Simulated assay, not measured.
Amino acid sequence: MQAGALFDKIQRFLGVEWIHTEEKAPVVAARESGPLLPPSAEELALLSRLVASGRVRNVVAEAVRMEETDPRLGPWIEQLRGLVRTYQLRKLQEFVDGYAAGTGLSGESA
């Protein structure tokens, strides 16, 4: 089964709506633009709960809000978006939890 057909069936049977966003910049460019500045511990905890519960749409909404509040988070948020965009939910959870634990995963490819 092709991925597109699978996503169509998931959308139809589960009633989900896929969020398509324009890619602003590749993740590699975001890394080169400066150090990754993660959100606060409270915001990381919120993102971790949202990812763990599968609320990806809310993760994206929170990321947008965080970036609007503090543009310095842009490179970190772009890495998060890259994981969301490619449906790498396990890596997304590891990425958020790694920063929440203070270890960070900036050396890992998205």
Rank of each mutant, 00 (worst) to 15 (best):
Y99K: 07
E43R: 03
P71C: 07
S109T: 06
R85V: 00
A63F: 04
M66R: 06
Y87P: 00
R49H: 08
A29D: 02
V59H: 02
Q11F: 09
L47Q: 03
K91I: 06
A61Y: 10
M66N: 02
H20Q: 12
L6T: 14
V51R: 14
F95A: 00
A3T: 02
S109E: 08
Q93P: 01
G15S: 04
L89M: 15
H20Y: 11
Q2G: 11
T86K: 02
E32F: 00
A63W: 07
I10A: 09
E67G: 01
H20E: 08
P71E: 10
A5W: 03
I10T: 04
S33Q: 12
G74V: 09
G54K: 12
A3W: 00
K9D: 12
E108H: 05
Q88I: 00
L37S: 10
P71A: 13
A61L: 09
I19C: 08
E23W: 04
N58P: 03
Q88R: 14
S40P: 01
P39H: 08
E67C: 13
R12I: 13
Q79K: 05
S53V: 11
L14N: 12
M1N: 06
L89N: 06
L46I: 08
L46S: 10
H20T: 08
A61R: 05
G15I: 02
G74Y: 11
N58D: 06
E78N: 07
V60R: 08
S48V: 03
E68K: 15
V16L: 14
